[in-house]
């Protein structure tokens, strides 16, 4: 058909670009992870699973678990902060909601390095927070707020919070208020309505936000590097070191591959949650269980930030 061949022509250059500069490089990383480091830092093309065994070494496993712990904490804190904020926005007058959301999202579009640096300015020993607390006499000696887990988690929450608010908001705003009213009319107290009705129905938004923060946090390299002061290693830093200092590219590739594996599993889990949410809303016919749910929902959320 003429129109379908024209559509192929339209999408070919863009898809070709993605295939050449994203899919092939990622396949390359996948293959590289089965080889080993050559004598002088190159790659020896000799197929084995050595790197995967090595990744299970307590040192690396420890770093992986630390990363999961930090990313997990950041995710929970971000959701606890974002949920009430998103809820508050959804209760405000319709016309104001887009403006409120726009100002939630605005910092998200600015430079990540600078947003992280701002926390160095606030948290260092001569920083604003320590100075402030000292001048009102709460503390007599500056606290060590920077270069630790606390600083890294704060930085991650700060950087990704806007998207979580957006994701949760988009779920809450789709909620039919009559469902909540029905629950209240049937005599359920407000907290019970929230726990049994509102929260389960907005689970897809929470899941989308959670996966987003977790995935971007666990692969993060800038925040642990700048706010953890090099003392704190996460998977992202480990990959960086393998490529730029240790020059063991195959092992770095293996670690990236594991990272992508974790990401895929979470996206799948999230797709399941989204789907279940939709069955509960009796809209199951429209979409099926696939990673696509995530993409569509997130695209919708990104649209919202402009709307």
């Amino acid at each position: 058909m003429r129109s379908s061949s024209r559509n192929m022509l339209l999408i070919a250059p863009g898809l070709g670009w993605l295939a050449l500069f994203m899919v092939i490089p990622c396949v390359l990383i996948f293959m590289l992870s089965f080889f080993e480091r050559g004598m002088y830092g190159g790659v020896d093309y000799n197929f084995n699973l050595e790197n995967f065994v090595r990744a299970m070494d307590p040192i690396y496993l420890g770093i992986l678990l630390d990363s999961i712990y930090i990313a997990g904490t950041a995710t929970i804190v971000a959701i606890l902060l974002a949920y009430p904020a998103a809820y508050a926005i959804s209760l405000s007058p319709r016309k104001k909601q887009t403006t409120y959301l726009f100002f939630i999202m605005l910092p998200f579009w600015s430079n990540y390095l600078i947003r992280t640096y701002a926390w160095i300015v606030l948290l260092n020993r001569e920083g604003l927070i320590n100075n402030g607390l000292e001048s009102i006499g709460v503390i007599s000696e500056p606290l060590n707020l920077l270069y630790n887990e606390f600083a890294v988690i704060t930085g991650l929450v700060y950087n990704y919070l806007p998207f979580v608010v957006l994701a949760i908001y988009s779920s809450i705003s789709k909620l039919n208020p009559e469902v909540r009213e029905a629950s209240e009319d049937l005599g359920a107290p407000a907290w019970k309505t929230f726990l049994r009705v509102t929260l389960p129905l907005t689970a897809p938004g929470v899941a989308a936000g959670a996966v987003f923060v977790f995935v971007l946090s666990i692969g993060n390299f800038i925040t642990p590097d700048l706010l953890g002061g090099g003392r704190l290693q996460m998977v992202g830093n480990l990959i960086y070191d393998q490529f730029l200092s240790a020059r063991d590219w195959p092992f770095g590739a293996t670690l990236s591959f594991i990272l992508i594996g974790i990401m895929m599993m979470l996206l799948f889990a999230q797709a399941v949650i989204v789907n279940r949410g939709q069955i509960e809303k009796h809209e199951a016919k429209e979409e099926d269980v696939s990673s696509m749910n995530f993409s569509r929902q997130s695209l919708n959320e990104k649209e919202k930030s402009y709307a």
Binding site: I24, I239, S295
Partner: peptide, 22 residues
């Protein structure tokens, strides 16, 4: 859709090293 969404969600460090290797 998944292919078009991948560049937005893939960790920067992974895309970075993949491109460097490539």
């Amino acid at each position: 859709d998944a292919l078009l969404f991948a560049p937005m969600i893939i960790p920067d460090i992974v895309l970075a090293i993949a491109l460097l290797s490539f």
